[in-house]
Structures are given as structure tokens and as C-alpha cells.
Amino acid sequence: MEQKILIVDDEAHIRMLIEQTLEELEDEEVTFLTADNGEDALEIISSEKPQLVFLDVMMPKMNGMEVCRRVKKELVLDDVYIVLLTAKGQEVDRLKGQEVGADVYMTKPFDPESILQKARTVLGLV
């Protein structure tokens, strides 16, 4: 079954790095989608229903918290697993992340190993 991962970050190199980290999943029929802002991300989530979203918190237009809130509280897409990404040192966001319904919370700079591990677990590709 084809599965989709959406990577949302306004910084191109972060999108590229996450994609590169998860590269080996391409062989297991995983497609990568990307967005560089919250609004686009919300649109893609609604139409494509990815299984997993890596969502940066600090973004222009609509921030990650808001995207997460709309997906979980308004669209009620419980099957979309959302990983919130925040810069280290801004861990106070953790509580807010839980409030808006994020499934898990990770910090940047991220540890590539744990990102890959998380994706495999969520997609059932262990």
C-alpha cells in the first residue's frame, strides 16, 4: 500500500535533510510530499491525507501549531500522525503542542536516527 509523508518547513535545507534521512523508505513505496508554509501544508493534508507529517512550528503565514490544531480539532483527521518540530531551547512549546493535539514533539537540530525510527514506527515499516 502506498503511504505518504509530508514534510513541512520553511527552510529548504531542513526539508531536503529530512527527505534524505528518510530516503530508504522510498523503496518501501513511501512517497514524500513537501510544503514550505502552513497554508499549503493544510491544503495538502486535506487532499492527500498523508499518514505522517513532520511539521515545523515557526513558519510564515500559518504556524505549525495552528496547522496542527486545524487538522486535529477542525478536520478531525485522527489518522494523520503529526510530529511537531521546534528549535532546541524553545521547549516551552511542548505543552502547547499537546494542547493542539500533536502526537509527538521533536527538537531541531534533529537526530536523523530517531526521525527515521519514528517514521518506520508510524508507518508500520519496522
Partner: peptide
């Protein structure tokens, strides 16, 4: 593109290691 990405990822891992070490 992939080649550069994988090199950058290696560098990123190093940065991550240094970051964790500093922490």
C-alpha cells in the same frame, strides 16, 4: 542533488553530535 544532500546530512549529523555534546 542526492549526492549533495547525503553529504549535507553527514555534516548535519556532525552538527547534531556537537550540539548534543555541548549540551
Amino acid at each position: 542533488k542526492k549526492k549533495i544532500a547525503s553529504e549535507v546530512l553527514l555534516l548535519y549529523q556532525e552538527v547534531n553530535m556537537i550540539f548534543n555534546f555541548s549540551e
